[in-house]
Design a protein around this nucleic acid. Structure first.
Lengths: 204, 204
DNA sequence: TGACGGTTTGACCGGACGGTCAGATCGGGG
DNA sequence: CCCCGATCTGACCGTCCGGTCAAACCGTCA
């Protein structure tokens, strides 16, 4: 990642990225405007363009910085650990990401929805490779009879889908649950643990 | 739904909505332009605005027409049928919607991601009511020991999340699976059937 | 104090966008 | 054939948006 020299450069770049995350995640790439980002950041529009070459450059900086942290939980899944606990740990960490970083999740969802024009190669490269590496681990566990056999890639899809759902569709989740249940995450964690324990329990 | 009198009105409204679905689902509301929609529809921009009062009117017409068909599969879940088969039928129909109407799914996802500014009341009204009605059915099945006890609302969330994932994140799904596996849906159907059978099987 | 690189901004540009309007075109009934 | 309402369009408007630029500002070091 290209990081500026001086303190003030680092500070302003961070301020801009923070504001841009707010605006991009809420309105999508085309829906966001530089004036809006500038106002949230408390900087003038030309000043934004002093630190980033273009609107797209800000977006790309956000996305590439995001992909790293986004895949960390999957990387952390350890082949030498207990299979069910490793997978449940992954689910739990992914759900925590949805709870603590919903803007990042929505930014990513927006990008994929539009056909991933700006991170397609990263998805077809790094992401594809990492998933297939971890699928090797999953298949080994299944062959050893330590978790029930299911299609490993679709298993990972199901984890992504259900955890990100609570960030991306937050409005719908809260509207359906009603105003009584303020925080959906504790119950979601319980539900997902039950679901994956039952799915993965090795058939005696 | 307001439907015009003449044949030509019905035809052109349909043409416009079809084109708008294409463009809105691909670029989101703000990312879509009237010129683009007009070109896809094969009509002039002023002609679009002869049939719809504004860009937003087109979007609202699409969304309200969508919500009806989108909830039909859930409505079709029958309290007097076999519980597991009814739920699996719902999952199957929802997955078929993702396969056959991905544009509609992405349009809806876009709207929810942006905070559902245009269909919030429909979600808090009709959707909320329907979900809670069906949760009553689910709870009854659980009380009778015919399916395993889980949180009914989160069960429905999990169905939505996993089925819509294959439409909304289609690019990612195909990139991760690789070019060999052209159509992800048959395997997805098998995986989801396994998952929900194991989740819902009553504990002996 | 003055000079200088790094930083900030007001004013502006060209293009795109949503929407309007006066008038042209069409098509069927008298 | 003409008329009349429905349908369609070229030209246009005001605004917004991404981006540029010359000039101003600021802290620091000589």
């Amino acid at each position: 990642m290209t990081q500026g020299r001086t303190r003030i450069q680092q500070r302003n770049r961070d301020t801009i990225l923070e504001a841009a995350l707010d605006v991009f995640s809420q309105h999508g790439f085309r829906g966001a405007t530089l004036d809006q980002i500038a106002e949230v950041a408390g900087l003038s529009k030309p000043n934004l363009l002093y630190y980033f070459a273009s609107k797209e450059a800000i977006h790309v900086a956000l996305l590439s910085q995001l992909l790293v942290t986004w895949l960390d939980p999957l990387r952390a899944m350890d082949a030498s650990g207990d299979p069910v606990e490793e997978l449940l740990g992954y689910v739990r960490r992914k759900l925590e990401l949805s709870r603590d970083y919903p803007r990042e999740s929505r930014l990513f969802a927006n990008e994929i929805l539009q056909g991933a024009p700006r991170i397609r190669e990263a998805i077809e490269g790094d992401l594809h490779a990492l998933v297939h590496e971890k699928c090797g681990v999953l298949r080994a566990w299944m062959d050893q009879g330590r978790i029930a056999p299911v299609h490993p890639v679709h298993l990972i899809f199901s984890i992504w889908a259900m955890t990100q759902h609570y960030a991306d569709f937050d409005v719908q989740v809260r509207a359906v649950l009603g105003p009584d249940e303020a925080d959906p995450f504790p119950e979601a964690a319980r539900f997902l643990e039950t679901l994956f324990r039952r799915l993965l329990a090795p058939v005696g």
